[in-house]
Design a protein around this nucleic acid. Structure first.
Lengths: 207, 207
DNA sequence: AGTGTAACGGAACATACATTCCAAGAAAAT
DNA sequence: ATTTTCTTGGAATGTATGTTCCGTTACACT
């Protein structure tokens, strides 16, 4: 039977120096760099400089570069799903939530031009075929976001705001697809108006 | 005044050893590796092994890794645009061409799962914010493909197959967006049916 | 103050990598 | 066969990078 080290420390009155950094802040900074420069394009030194961590602290707490990458992906994924859920909490019907989310996504892409799109999309492009763990995170993210889209679509149908001619799942995949597209498009020289138009046409396609 | 070396060679009866490789074959192989592993993920050694070239031949003919990457992008871009134009030559109306192209795109993505999506999309994700030359190629590719989509949409309108309520450009961007999305989606664990459904909903959105 | 533990800093290491360089080889024409 | 010039092979170089290791430091508790 294993006991958390923390408990043992208390039992024996041992309280060593505590971590000088915040795990989430490190993952956030790391995710940001990975998003900008890709996995193979970012060096440990850059991460150290951006996080202020020492080499040994990073390796002690995050094992190695690849493991840090996966943890950063998970962190980013959680944040993205949390953003969806915060939209979900708003007092809107499903269709309005979809519309709101797409507008927000476009605004974010335009207002943060240096952020290089989306870590999930970039990871899918760079790593999905090379690293099964990365592809699992990406795949899971896709399923979760599609599921939320499905719920919103069903809500809109229940409230008679929408009348879909195909299974809901076709449309939720369609929406997820369009969202991924926007994240690529924003890296391909598209203007804000173009992105907004794509969002509009996409949402109107549901009618 | 400068004269092509080739001419001088003929004038002076000088005919040195000719190149032992085909430029397009090298670019095709290089584009393939860059697509699979990304720019920063592929080493010169891998390219040498895949192309059979010697180190010096590669540097003589393609300058350096970065230049080879850009040339591979241009090569891939030309092929992609040629594929669009070969669809354009078919005896179909614009809407049928759009439908055909999307189905072909899905089939290609499914039938070549190891190819890692699309070099243009992957390059947009990895390099667009880091390398202006890359972003120019990507941007130009976007404009060219959108232009073809626009022509097809206008053709469909002229033939009364389609009645669009917004400017044609909104829809051509929408189509290009969906196409980019599909290339990400195929890397995110989507099934063939999902991709086909997205293509269907996308095309039907035009009605 | 003293003690024990883990965090920290930085040097050190091994490897991978892009690039250069030079000598040898090979084709075309005489 | 010889000449000319470019291609080719492979060694060599210098740097960047991921990772390890060890001595020091700082914290929490007695």
């Amino acid at each position: 039977m294993y006991v958390p080290l923390h408990y043992i420390s208390i039992l024996f009155n041992i309280m060593p120096k505590v971590k000088q950094f915040n795990r989430n802040e490190v993952l956030s900074a790391a995710a940001h760099i990975f998003q900008t420069k890709g996995y193979n394009g970012t060096s440990i030194d850059e991460i150290l400089k951006a996080t202020g961590l020492s080499r040994s602290s990073l390796y002690d707490s995050f094992s190695d570069k690849h493991s840090l990458y996966l943890q950063s992906l998970e962190f980013y994924k959680s944040n993205q799903e949390a953003a969806f859920e915060s939209v979900d909490k708003k007092e809107m019907n499903g269709l309005e939530k979809i519309e709101f989310l797409f507008k927000e996504a476009v605004n974010h892409l335009i207002n943060h031009p240096k952020e290089n799109g989306c870590l999930m999309v970039n990871a899918a492009a760079e790593m999905s075929k090379l690293c099964i763990q990365t592809s699992e995170i990406i795949c899971n993210n896709k399923e979760n976001l599609q599921e939320i889209f499905s719920e919103w679509l069903m809500d809109a149908q229940n409230k008679k705001v929408l009348h879909l001619s195909k299974p809901v799942k076709s449309y939720s995949t369609f929406l997820f697809n369009a969202l991924c597209g926007l994240k690529v498009l924003s890296q391909s020289g598209a203007s804000k108006n173009e992105l907004l138009n794509v969002a509009k046409v996409t949402v109107e396609a549901l009618h």
